[in-house]
Write a protein that binds this DNA or RNA. Structure first.
Lengths: 341, 341
DNA sequence: GATCTGAGTGGAAACGTTGCGACTGCGTTG
DNA sequence: CAACGCAGTCGCAACGTTTCCACTCAGATC
């Protein structure tokens, strides 16, 4: 049965009547050990309920088998999905995940990077916040890093994200195909790459359809619900408002919904509405909401896999930069329809 | 400026012309160091961009300054809130958080507990899954542990959760106060303590109001959206259906909403509907949804604080068991109204 | 002036691993 | 039959800290 006191390799070695080197060899299978000694060691480990001390191991080997993940806000439904994808892949590869929430504050972020570095994580996955200095920080410290979702301006970085240009484009194309010409967009915060890219995609789709982009139909703002309400008001108060609106993220979408409700408008009769980011509840709204879904889990999974590659890479060989863009997917529901005006 | 190579206390000591003991003393402020040496050490640390190695420190001190958090599903919006609360408190106290997602699988959970133990975490916060053996596992290993939300049957454990009995009770009382007598409840999975307790609260409220609890108005099920749809169908198909329904969690609520929509019923005219668990989107549905909000952040924060207490506690003194129940709060919106039948 | 304090310092032994090099025997080879 | 190779062991020195202990050299005390 289980032993109450924590025990070390020494205890195992003593009980099995071998040296600690042999115990180590059995555990790591680095050296051939004769079957009978091997069996003795395994039994001793069993009896003592021995669990290797990962800390001592890390100190010796110089690898912690842990990665850090920094997100700006874990309560934003997008990030738990990414974390889930990354965590699952990490566990499978024998890695643990240190999670940090930077609260959209680059000072907090910087402290967390320091802490992760102190803990000697083997790599970091980060969705950075505005004004982040994470890139310089990690380059200086020579820690492998993958940027997800929000990409820093530097282009010598490994990144994984939705193909946000494509996401913005298929959103607009869907509305254009329905016959909309007067399309508005809540573009979010243009210092954040996803929002910038979605706007770019929107632009491309409009240009290809030879539709004008009216400057009063384009609202940039922060990305919280209140911002969505304000921006929605602004669009809907226009003398000749858009017949369709794209919201660049899920909170902005909720904001527009509120503005729509307050005016007693009905979707999709009075307005077609489409969001980028798809969540469970979108398909339970009345009407159900058309959205562009991001490959969230896959972003997480791919980030870890790419990171693992960087970690295993002998660092003298600087390996080509990878900038992975995974396509988004349109999910047509009931909040979009041909224009009635 | 920053130094490219990682550096150790030795390097600092050499540059400052002192011993490593002195450097250590400066860092930890365990021993008085003369001002001028202190300054020299600090400057050397600056110049070399020295960051203490947390791994070596842990090995020596026996404390990792890290805790583990295990949740059954990080993509369930309840848990990110809890994690956020705990993580914030942990950071503030100089602790890092190792996050694990057990995917509702007790075998995965067990492996994760082992991994956390191997990493010598100072404590664990866990929302366990059905059939969890986490309690025995941690007792055996003598690691301080706090159970959150989902509480194990053993009553010698420290726990933090919503006061779910009270949550169920105020939900029912609200409906009763509106004049409802025929109240149905989707009670969730009774192997999970929150659901069991909410049902108990519902029972109490009904008894105190001298209202009968009709067995056909009580549905237990798993806790996913599909289960909610099925259970909602079951209730609404009754010859004489309830005038109000309580859904024991947010996914069940979405399920009932779907069942309601499919029948073309209108809230709150045809049915009052109330959920336990409140989220951002509840207040953007049409109509807005009445809900009982759980003190999610506070659960997280309190869990960490309690855990920290256990960690600091000299373990010979077994300290009284703490079972913290934090009250929930009713948020009245538009999905509940007096009955029309 | 000899002893005693005590503050400030450094040396060195841990902490629990890993992995190199050295040491055994044995079987094989010329 | 001597020399050699090799599989299987073990001893021991790290890894980067902390911390105990011993030491020095002031100034204070008698």
């Amino acid at each position: 049965m289980a032993q109450p006191t924590k025990c070390t390799m020494r205890d195992v070695a003593r009980l099995a009547g071998v040296s600690t080197s042999t115990v180590s060899a059995v555990i790591n299978e680095t050296v051939v050990v004769s079957p009978e000694r091997r069996a003795k060691v395994l039994r001793a480990m069993e009896v003592l309920d021995y669990q290797p001390d990962a800390i001592a191991r890390s100190l010796k080997t110089g690898r912690s088998n842990a990665i850090g993940i920094i997100v700006p806000d874990i309560t934003n439904a997008f990030f738990p999905e990414v974390v889930r994808g990354a965590e699952e892949a990490a566990q499978a590869a024998g890695y643990s995940v240190l999670l940090c929430d930077s609260r959209e504050d680059y000072n907090v972020e910087e402290r967390q990077l320091s802490a992760l570095f102190s803990r000697r994580v083997d790599g970091v996955i980060i969705a950075c916040c505005v004004d982040s200095r994470a890139h310089e920080s990690m380059v200086r410290r020579r820690v492998p890093v993958i940027f997800v979702d929000r990409l820093p301006p530097a282009n010598s970085v490994n990144t994984v994200s939705t193909d946000n240009v494509q996401a913005g484009q298929i959103a607009a194309e869907h509305l254009i195909a329905l016959g909309h010409q007067r399309i508005g967009m809540l573009a979010g915060h243009l210092d954040l790459s996803p929002h910038r890219d979605r706007l770019e995609g929107f632009r491309r789709a409009m240009q290809e359809a030879h539709l004008p982009i009216l400057s009063e139909f384009l609202v940039t703002s922060n990305v919280q619900v209140e911002d969505g309400v304000r921006a929605g008001d602004q669009l809907l108060n226009l003398p000749d408002p858009p017949t369709a609106i794209i919201a660049s993220n899920n909170k902005l979408l909720l904001g527009v919904l509120q503005a729509v409700d307050e005016r007693g408008l009905t979707l999709p009769k009075d307005l077609s509405l489409l969001g980028i980011d798809d969540y469970l509840w979108n398909s339970h709204f009345n009407p159900t909401l058309t959205a562009v879904a991001q490959p969230t889990r896959e972003i997480g999974r791919s980030s870890f896999e790419l990171l693992l590659q960087m970690i295993s890479q002998p660092l003298e060989e600087p390996a080509p930069v990878v900038q992975l863009r995974i396509p988004a997917e349109l999910r047509v529901r009931k909040s979009t329809a041909p224009p009635t005006r």
